[in-house]
Design a protein around this nucleic acid. Structure first.
Length: 550
RNA sequence: GGCCUGUUGGUGAAGUGGUUGAACACACAUGCCUUUCACGCAUGCAUUCACGAGUUCAAAUCUCGUACAGGUCACCA
């Protein structure tokens, strides 16, 4: 029995050949330097920081070279599918400005000429490639049962041999075609394995774009290429898909580094040119229990889920800015030098990606976020805080909507200037900083943070003197502050800080103490943005209400 | 256990044989500025690049070994 006959016995319905598919998916007409890459998640749940990171890098590289970045869904493990994952993945990434040129656009639909972009719909294609291998004697059906496989494994472990299906353990590798056919005709279950041409004592060198040259022993394992359900394993799907889809660069997590010998071998067996590989190190965090560095884990670390940042009100742009500096640490200096530029104008370089895992530092993210928000216009802060509040704090949202101009004016205090305030790192924190400006919140039991001057009658004297004698809503800032100084003088407080520091005992206090009393009486807080602006915004009605308590 | 990778300060890192102040950013501390806070500014924070040996006139940079950390060894991706 010839290999060809055997191949037809195994895949009777597969009529297309590799050449047919090559014609169907011609080479892309792109610039020589254009990178074709992809994000290829399995639809098993939410997008986490790690996948956001690799899709971000993939998207960045494709964009910067006028290439293509497509979304391929790897659903060959039918048991792990999670409903609506595709929709969620697309939505989450879109929130982070990551969109694809080709690939899935919903659970069912897709765009692009190299599809289907979901592996479960590519079964025939994989089988055509597998059929070719059988015809060439480069793959074979394997009848080893799960029990037998487990036994082999035990033997190998006991004798400290390498684990896997190779050498004498590859029991069906050289079974004559006639006997194979007989077993198949008898209905014995089987899978298809690669007949690995590798030799463990020889070396392969693979050039990783990030790690440089890595030397491995050749793969001599007869890996599974087609599973019992007729679908391919990851390795085989990678070969077929990335070949047909014209992928030039495979960007993925470093958990794949060790399968490089398998992947390179697969491309060699078919005589295809392998893509370039870039393996990204995992994002790490400090483990609170052990104090050591460890990979961010889905179970233990809420900050791994992209939704964590959404709920915390951290702007997506800030996360992206941070991911960019993790990817290429020179981005930070570049961004400092070009503060008005965007990530799009920065050139990413594989060579500058660190080979060791970066600690994902929430503190650092916070700082980036704070700087980012400080550069926003007041209306943007208003809009985005409103969006956040609509989802997480309806009460605050209704207030923002009730007083849009007032709110924007509040956000604009010391904002649109060269050195803006940096009060909040998240949209969630906004309320904490501005609540006292709204009468709806400034009610009930208020905890006034009076400091040095906390005597009731003294507070009353300061407030009543100020508001009856000095305060004028029309004053400009300088006049306003001069009046505070005059008030200080009148009441025995030193109007000048330097003078006060030179002779503190000569006065009851200083101009700062006076300001603080006014500030606390009106806002309850001892620390606020510019008092002059706050007085102006509050307006005489709110002011009178608030000081009437003293 | 086999194979692969990594290890520069509290953190991210720059730096790949020589002009050693090991850049820069975050965090922290102190001071200045200042009506408070924030901002800003200034200063401080690794006598040393996991450890040991070797190569060299010269090593964080090259080699070997050790330790530690991560990854992988599925009909999961």
């Amino acid at each position: 029995m010839t290999n060809k006959e055997l191949a037809n016995l195994i895949f009777p319905n597969i009529t297309k050949t590799i050449a047919d598919y090559e014609n169907l998916y011609p080479k892309r007409n792109l610039d020589e330097k254009a990178v074709v890459t992809r994000f290829a998640p399995s639809p098993t749940g939410f997008v986490h920081l790690g996948s956001l990171f690799s899709s971000f890098v993939a998207r960045k590289v494709a964009t910067q070279t006028n290439g293509i970045c497509f979304l391929r869904i790897e659903d060959t493990d039918q048991e792990r599918l999670v409903e609506n994952s595709v929709t969620e993945i697309i939505r989450d990434l879109k929130n982070y400005q990551i969109e694809f040129d080709e690939g899935m656009i919903s659970e069912e639909e897709e765009k692009g000429n190299y599809g289907p972009y979901i592996q479960s719909k590519r079964k025939d294609i994989y089988q055509a490639f597998a059929k070719y291998l059988i015809e060439e004697g480069l793959a074979y059906p394997c009848f080893l049962t799960e029990v037998e496989l487990a036994e082999i494994r035990e033997v190998q472990e006991a004798s400290k041999e390498r684990i896997g299906c190779y050498g004498k353990y590859a029991k069906y590798r050289d079974l004559p075609n006639e006997m194979v056919a007989e077993k198949i005709n008898n209905g014995e279950p089987y899978i298809i394995r690669l007949k690995s041409p590798g030799n463990f004592d020889k070396k392969v060198v693979v050039n990783d774009l990030i790690r440089g040259k890595i030397e491995f022993p050749e793969n001599d394992l007869d890996i599974v290429i087609i599973k019992k359900d007729g679908l391919p394993t990851y390795h085989f799907a990678h070969l077929v898909d990335d070949y047909l889809m014209g992928t030039t660069h495979v960007i993925r997590g470093d958990e794949w580094v060790s399968s490089l010998p398998v992947h390179v071998q697969l491309f060699e067996v078919f005589g295809f040119k392998a893509p370039k590989y870039a393996h990204l190190s995992p994002l790490m965090k400090i483990d609170e229990e052990t104090g050591g560095k460890r990979k961010l884990s889905k179970r233990k670390d809420p900050e791994l889920a992209v939704s964590f940042y959404h709920e915390a009100g951290i702007p997506e742009e800030a996360v992206l800015l941070y991911l960019m500096t993790i990817a290429n640490s020179n981005f930070e200096a570049w961004f400092d030098a070009n503060p008005n530029s965007s990530i799009n104008e920065f050139t990413f370089d594989f060579k500058k990606v660190s080979a060791s895992g970066a600690l994902f530092d929430l503190e650092k993210l916070n700082n980036i976020s704070k700087n980012y928000i400080s550069k926003l216009k007041a209306t943007e802060v208003y809009n985005r805080t409103l969006i956040y509040a609509k989802e997480f704090d309806l009460e605050f949202a209704s207030l923002l909507e009730k007083y849009p101009d007032y709110s924007i004016a509040i956000f604009n205090i010391e904002r649109e200037q060269k050195k803006p305030r940096k009060d909040y790192a998240t949209f969630k924190e906004v309320k904490k900083e501005v609540w006292y400006m709204y009468d709806e919140y400034f009610t009930g039991d208020i905890n006034y943070e009076f400091g040095k001057v906390n005597d009731e009658s003294e507070i009353h004297t300061i407030l009543s003197t100020y508001f009856t004698k000095y305060y004028n809503a029309e004053d400009d800032k300088e006049t306003w502050f001069n009046k505070i100084k005059e008030l200080s003088k009148e009441l025995g407080y030193c109007p000048d800080m330097k003078e006060y520091k030179a002779a503190p005992d000569a006065y009851k206090g200083n101009v700062a103490d006076i300001s603080t009393v006014i500030r606390v009486a009106l806002t309850s807080k001892s620390q606020t943005p510019d008092l002059y602006e706050i007085l102006k915004l509050l307006g005489i009605e709110r002011i009178q209400n608030r000081i009437s308590k003293f």
